[in-house]
Amino acid sequence: MSYVWTLGEQFEGKLRGVSFELLARGKKLAEELDTKVCSLILGHNISDEDLEELIQRGADEVYFVDDPRLADFQNETYSNVISDLINQYHPHIVLAAATTIGRVVMPYVAIKVNTGLTADCTQLEIQPETKLLLQTRPAIGGNIMATIKTPDHMPQMATVRPKSSRPLDKDPSRSGKIQRIVLKDELVDTRAKVIEFRTDDAGFVNIEEADVVVAGGKGLKQAANVKLVEDLAKQLDGVVGASRQAIDRGWLSYPHQVGLSGKTISATLLLTAGISGSIQYLAGIKTCENIVAINNDPEANIFGVSDFGIVGDLFEVLPLLTQKLAQAKK
């Protein structure tokens, strides 16, 4: 059986959204290959409802390796478990999310099971004549799109950019098999130990997986004005991002940074204010679906990649926009 596998992710026992995004990808590929899609989950204390949701959103089978030693992500143990299952079941395709988990565990597994891996793909399709997986990804800061295949090794593996696909709607009529797998002791690597997990401030953001990001840059002029961006983000149910300029000035902490030395985002809506759009910044936002820019310089690069631009003073535009959105809600 030529399975397609997707590596689901959990955080503190709750499935992360990328698990469902991957299934949407995996199901489409599995249909083209006339095979099944299986979601693999490593963790502990995951509810039956969550596992069932994987079936409802596309999985034909769920393999859940359930053990307290898998509650926290630990690269070596996770890699051992995934490699062991690959060697046992021989899937043809393995997809994972290009997250801080997927981007380290998958390259590790690729070496262990002796196959290729393509990073951070935004398109996946089956080549009709060869049935091989065509893996397309942005490189050089999004300036090129490279299509890659793994012709002579199995499985064909790729990490997929978060938010680059939408989860399938829940279909309660779907049924599938949930198989619980016991962790083999010999696969547990105790060298690196997870001590604790913490967020430094209440404003810790997961901008890579946010639907709406409102980002501010140098044009905010000072830390106090970050509030303008925060207020708008609140109205749009979004999170706050920032250009490197704003981070390096200490206005916001590093996890907010978008761009080459920060995060790459694929938000449904990105609204930028006071960001001119350096090449490095643009590299981080090219796969956003809708980009709105507010900047006082009509020549700013950001307008070249925007779907909607306002040439104006952000100190006037942002408060008015926030206020009108608030009114519209009432």
Partner: peptide
Amino acid sequence: GSPTKVVKIETPKVTRSGTLLKAN
């Protein structure tokens, strides 16, 4: 020795044809 092979390279057009409004 590389398991992955590049099939093609394309250069996507990065510009979007957006609305641009002056607010002065």
